[in-house]
Design a binder for these strands. Sequence first.
RNA 1: GGGCGAUUAGCUCAGUUGGUAGAGCGCUUCAUUUACACUGAAGAUGUCGGGGGUUCGAGCCCUCCAUCGCCCACCA
Length: 710
Amino acid sequence: MDDKFLGPYEPAHTESRIYEAWEKSGYFNPDNLPEELLAHNGKPFTIVMPPPNANGNLHAGHALFIALEDLFTRFRRMQGYRALWIPGADHAGFETQVVYEKKLEKEGRSRFSMDPKDLYGEILAFTLMNKKNMEGQVRALGASCDWSREKFTLDPDVIERVQQTFVKMHDDGLVYRGKRTVNWCPKHQTSLSDVETESVEETTPFYTFKYGPFDIGTVRPETKFGDKYVVMHPDDARYAEYKHGDKLTVEWINGPIEATIIKDEAVEMDFGTGVMTITPWHSQIDFEIAKRHGLDMEQIIDWRGKLLPIAGEFEGMKITEARAKIVEKLASKGLVVSTDEKYTNVVKRCYKCATMIEPQIKDQWFVTMAPLAKMALDAADRKELTFIPEYQEKVFRYWMENALDWNISRQIVWGIQIPAWFRNRNTDTEEIVASLQKPSGDGWEKDTDTFDTWFSSGQWPLITTGFPDGKDATHYPTDVMESGYDLVFKWIPRMIIFGLYLGKKTPFHTIYLHGLVNDANGKKMSKSKGNVINPLDLTDKFGTDALRMGLIVGNTPGTDLALREDKIKGYKNFANKLWNISRFVLTETEGADLSVPLTSVDQELRAELDALIADVTKDLEEYRVYLAAEKIYHYAWHRLADDILETSKPILTGSDAAARASRQNLLRSLLADVLKLLHPFMPFVTEEIWASLMPNQGLLMVTKWPSTKA
RNA sequence: GGGCGAUUAGCUCAGUUGGUAGAGCGCUUCAUUUACACUGAAGAUGUCGGGGGUUCGAGCCCUCCAUCGCCCACCA
């Protein structure tokens, strides 16, 4: 027996050495897998890693996805698949830029006073440093991903491919330049997609003002300067005397203005007085009404959130200060009818800085979503997508059925440039061309905007497999997409859409959605609350295997997990239990004759494990990993250790030589298979024991999964 | 306002197609150096949120209700 078994299991002495051995073996790359293993199957099995944002440390959620995806990969590899797990890193456009801007702010600098090229260079250096750090952390968690295929979302070939997609979509009429309402963040000076904003319920005063013969309601008096249209429902009997297009002069904030009556069904008759004025430039719904009737649109608030000259005496004032002053002025003119202080409405805020989003009209690139969303829904109808848990499909469908056109331009430098060119910009003879090269002729000006990060990461399964031309094209479509359920309406549909549009197939057939990892009290981890758990601290304390088990056992997909140290500690004990089982078996079977047949009692015990193997294999194939883990755990500890080992003691010291030899064989065979079953869950300790149990038999990582044929 | 999920032992949660409840932690008693004290043996604890229904049989299926949580939202 190895001397190493003399003490308890020490993860710290084992893990980095084992990982190095795996990596050196080359088996993370399916092209190098042993032929005799592939002979059992040989089909590709592929997972694309959701590329972590290369702008900080891994968090507990990353540890969970690595545990799960590594488990899927190791299981399939042992089953003889050409298992490929492709790692990556995401430049995470806006996210990283926000992180970097905070850093700049601390240093008393601002991106708005920097040369865009310098800024890009600085963020690139910052990101590459974090990327390296992140890769080390992924290794520490035992990930058996193929580093030789790692992709970064800003690799030159990725950039080119993403830009080509844009040009193709433009040629296919799926991308258009639109002057439309966008979510504008006045702090970050960029537009944001709908999923980059959050709606917060707030209590705001609701004012009713006198507007000529009407009473109109608003929560935003500061936008009302240009309100020259007064809108009501066409069927509203109260206002039947007013006809669409009628004009009347009303006294307003800065004097009399001419108002025009508009009849539109968007107005709710039951809400307030059933009359409203509109501000098309700063409200989505008002914009739609104005568009339907061909009305003028005027900007009231500038890009920094200050009032424009149209506000007269209020020009240059921040909207937050202006509101009260405007109400005061209206009151002095006797135009305030009432103020409801307890009105609650929903306000959109930037999901990063919580600044109030100012709807603005801006020229932006949009993806026409309707036909693409339909492709995704059709694929779901054809049952080409399996969601785990099943109910998440409803969420996915809801988003596809209600998909709004997607704003893909961002006014930030950190990202992939949009390959578009303008000539005579903002004039009547404006020309726009989508092309990777500068068009011929003079006066072309390149679009300075960059893509929404989901535009590139949405193509990730295609890009990482190089479909359709690359050498790994056989790995597309991939098998499983494993991700947090919070991405079911962000990343997942975009990958499906790009997959169908560019690859003609869904990019994966199974979507495994894990829950969020919360703190021990079930509270969401956040830096401000100070309850963030660093997974690497837990691996130091309890070992990577223990952390992985703690994240997997009993953690059903789609359900949030309260990460408790005592649970992880329990699996540290389990790793040690396995260690001691192995010590016992190795000691008691030294020099045993392994060709002796099993007694009938031992055959029964062997059959019992075979039944478990069949059960667990089925669980894993059907992604019930949370159950499989518990079953093996229970068998190893409470059946093998507590019962079988105990009842073996008298046999092993007894006088019946045949029974003794049989039992020795049995114990070695049970332990070997338990190690195989546990390997995808606890790769380090099982590999370490394997080396002693089966010396010179190669790595457990590439040992065939036990057969279910008893 | 719309949608989704949850409600099971003191705590955290399982329970795969319906067959009279399970795990881990905690708790009680015992064992005292055993392969392992990062241990073992024995044990206590649940009208499975509530009402109604389907069924020979319901934690699981249907329906209504209550409470909690999450997500979404262009009624100004």
